[in-house]
Design a protein around this nucleic acid. Structure first.
Lengths: 109, 109
DNA sequence: CGTGTAAGGAATTCTGACACG
DNA sequence: CGTGTAAGGAATTCTGACACG
């Protein structure tokens, strides 16, 4: 299970105050985007949020879209699509999804 | 003057508490190594220390050497040597150093 | 020399809520 | 819907100092 993980980019080590400085977003905004599931910081033992550089980049994307008037809801959908496409097991998951859909369909009948 | 600088590795964004968790060192130790000039965190506007992943790695090296009984003083010297060798302008600086030495030598005569 | 610790203050972060719209 | 703000508490960080050795 242990991956290579020498990637600083994904290590959750940045506190919300620094993220705020880095992105120009307010603490309120950052927390709100989490509430809307646009980002998922880690929590330390005592509950403070920790972000990665990836999260920071993501937040900057979010900021851009928000400036264009895109709602968090829409942003979420867009990001899910993008992530899906980049996953190696995209096609496999697609297939499973279709199978599940069929299964549910048949149960409902 | 603006360098490429897309390197997350050198961005000073990690607070001392997280660095402590990452390295296993106590806050006291981390601050002390700064006092001895083994590391140089940045300071936020209000004075809290911020470290980079490079700093974290460096601290782990320091921790190893300290375990081997090496004094901070020695560690500093070793690290300076290593850094010097890795600098692109190492040879140029070397040369300047020699010229300066000659210059001083001649003045003293 | 290197590190622990208690001390007091300042700054950070957290949550839930009210406000506006 | 998205964001600001005041509120009270808890956790973090800072510095200078005393302690041991």
């Amino acid at each position: 299970m242990e991956q290579h993980d020498h990637s600083y980019k994904d290590k959750k080590v940045i506190s919300i105050g620094i993220v705020s400085e880095l992105t120009g977003l307010s603490l309120r905004q950052i927390r709100y985007y989490e509430e809307r599931h646009l980002i998922s910081p880690q929590r330390t033992t005592r509950g403070t949020r920790k972000y990665s550089f990836s999260d920071v980049e993501r937040l900057m994307e979010i900021a851009n879209k928000r400036e264009d008037g895109v709602q968090t809801n829409e942003i979420l959908k867009e990001m899910r699509k993008k992530e899906m496409r980049s996953k190696p097991d995209y096609r496999k998951k697609m297939l499973e999804g279709q199978l599940n859909a069929q299964f549910h369909f048949r149960n409902k009948k």
